[in-house]
Amino acid sequence: MNQYKSVGAVLLASVLSFSCHKHFTVKSNEYKQYVISNEVAADSSVIRYYAPFKQQMEAEMNKVIGTASSELEKSSDPETSLGNFFADAILVEARKIEPAIDISFPTTKGGIRNSVSAGNITVANIFELMPFDNEIIILKLSGAGVQKIADYLAASNGQPVSGIRLKVVDKKAYDVTVAGKPLDLNREYIIATSDYLANNGDDQSSLANPLERRNTGKLIRTALLDYVAEQTKNGKSITPLIDGRIVVSGN
């Protein structure tokens, strides 16, 4: 027994020196992932808890901020009233941030998720139109860069733009003008677009390698809401407009 005691004493001494070391080590781990689908029962107390928030949110969303004199249609046409409204609105709102903007190309046709019906325009309508949280990006492009946009507009059968006009024959751009003047390959232009398109979204790279880029932090949706509210304040309704900015012929 004495022998054991002495061993014990040595052991105890070493406990003192090691006692502040970790006492737990990970032996193994397991992973599981739960898919939150309709097969997971909902916590009714949570639903009850946020019901008043939901009501208020829906009331805010149903707030009327303007009117459309007739329907702004979503279609695959080269130029659409919905696309023109979108691009014109972003040109106006982006110029409040950077007055020198020449062109807006804020979305593709596919990026506009809903049409606007005739009559009241609600906050929800704008959210349905633009559910994505993309922000306005301001780019400085060379004339050749703007030519690339024109080429893409021609090749993709037109996209929502404002400030630029062109004719398209056999998917090629002709007679490109900016603010009424022929595109000048020797000057620079300022473009308003979205972070999505500027980052080569929708499988296009027409805005790649800008001379300069500025992120505004202003959501495109917020700009659309501001635009409609301002039109209403000025006693105007949103009116569908097709002005021949992209004319396709010879197909």
């Binding site: 052991l11 737990f24 781990n29 397991e30 739960y34």
Partner: peptide, 30 residues
Amino acid sequence: INLGRLDFFFDRQSGKHKMMAAVCPVSEKI
């Protein structure tokens, strides 16, 4: 859409366990 779950299983190394590990060379010497 998903909730991740990772379970870690720790071995609680009791004082005795810890001591045994720590003093192993000392004991052998003895």
